[in-house]
Simulated scan of single mutants.
Amino acid sequence: MTTGSLLGAIDLIGSPESVSLARAYVREKLGREHPALHDVTLLVSEVVTNAVVHSDSGNGGTVTLVLADRHEFIHVDVVDAGGGDAPRVCCDLYGEGGRGLLLVQEISHRWDVLQHPAGRTVWFQVKYTREK
Rank of each mutant, 00 (worst) to 15 (best):
G83S: 04
D69M: 01
T41G: 05
G61F: 09
G100F: 01
I13L: 13
S18T: 12
K132I: 13
Y94S: 12
R32Y: 05
D56P: 00
T129V: 10
G60S: 07
N59H: 07
L12Q: 13
I10Q: 09
E96T: 04
N59D: 14
G100S: 03
V53C: 09
L65F: 09
E17S: 15
H38N: 10
K127P: 10
R99F: 08
T129L: 08
L42R: 07
H34G: 01
T3Q: 07
A22T: 08
L6F: 10
Q125S: 15
A51G: 09
F124S: 11
D56S: 03
G100Q: 10
H75C: 07
L7G: 12
T64S: 14
K127Q: 09
P117Y: 02
D92V: 15
G4Y: 00
G97M: 11
R110P: 00
V76N: 01
V19T: 06
V104E: 14
G82H: 06
V48N: 14
S20Q: 12
V79F: 00
E17Y: 12
L42T: 05
L42Q: 04
G31I: 03
V47F: 01
V47M: 11
E33S: 14
S108M: 09
L114G: 00
H38P: 02
G98N: 08
L65W: 07
G8T: 08
V40W: 02
D77T: 00
V126W: 02
F73W: 07
L30V: 08
T49E: 13
L67R: 02
A86Q: 10
T64F: 08
D77V: 00
Q125W: 03
L101H: 01
H116R: 08
V122L: 13
E131C: 11
D39Q: 12
G83Y: 04
G100W: 00
G8N: 05
F73G: 10
V126A: 05
K132E: 14
Y94D: 10
R88Y: 15
A24T: 09
G95K: 15
L103I: 06
V26Y: 13
E33L: 12
K127S: 08
G83Q: 04
A68P: 04
P35G: 02
V78D: 14
T129H: 11
V89G: 06
F124L: 13
C91M: 14
V126S: 05
A86N: 08
I10S: 08
G97C: 15
D92C: 13
V19R: 00
Q105V: 06
S45H: 09
L6R: 14
T41E: 14
